[in-house]
Design a protein around this nucleic acid. Sequence first.
DNA 1: TAGACTGTGTACTATATAGTATACACTCAG
DNA 2: CTGAGTGTATACTATATAGTACACAGTCTA
Lengths: 117, 117
Amino acid sequence: MSAFGGFVRETREALRAVDPSFSVRQVAARIGVQPSYLSKVERGDVGPPSENTIVRLADDLGEDPDVMLALAGKVSSDLLEVIRKRPRLFADLIRELKDMPDRAVLRLVREVRDGEW
Amino acid sequence: MSAFGGFVRETREALRAVDPSFSVRQVAARIGVQPSYLSKVERGDVGPPSENTIVRLADDLGEDPDVMLALAGKVSSDLLEVIRKRPRLFADLIRELKDMPDRAVLRLVREVRDGEW
DNA sequence: TAGACTGTGTACTATATAGTATACACTCAG
DNA sequence: CTGAGTGTATACTATATAGTACACAGTCTA
């Protein structure tokens, strides 16, 4: 049971407990894959789905797509594009922040967002 | 001629003008691929090589691996790992910085590096 | 003019990615 | 006791990735 698969199964089962439309079949139908495939994904029988499929799944389950992509060992392609456009700048920044505590990075995010600079 | 291939060819040719050991054959031998493959890569006849091969090539050519990976449409796997470990934090930060001018991001990098906070 | 280079064309390959399609056994409400 | 719904096993596939192996024609130089 992969980290990704386990997360999907638990999240979906929790939703199913209060809403029967969160069966494997119905979720699969909504996100546009075969039920057997979603079943295999949940049990880690196959690798995680593509980015698009993960995003549709995250949307259906009400979960954060970036977190679900991370569980699948991926990074959203829009973030990759930002880095690819200015690789030196962002590579330096990310490596610099690699070992910083969450609160330090969070403070940086807020500073940038609030334009305090 | 892809962006990546063109860059490799021009960089290698420039080096070859002053050092004959920068022929297709000899570079290919040093980085561990077939000469015909490197030739095809340079002409964009095939897609860009794997991350490992790009890094060895960047090393041999004395170029920045992050820049060469970016030209190949890729992002270094060590950066991906940083993001994957704290996806919410880094996704927010990167999206926040997406449209910021270079100097603003650079200032941030320096602030973090110099511990001015 | 032979030998040692140069780059490149052609053909092939192994592995991964991202699924589909169909059929099967089980459960549970009416 | 049936029929609608549940999850899953099995078999198959199309495309991409990341190259290898070998042969070939041209050039340069000693």
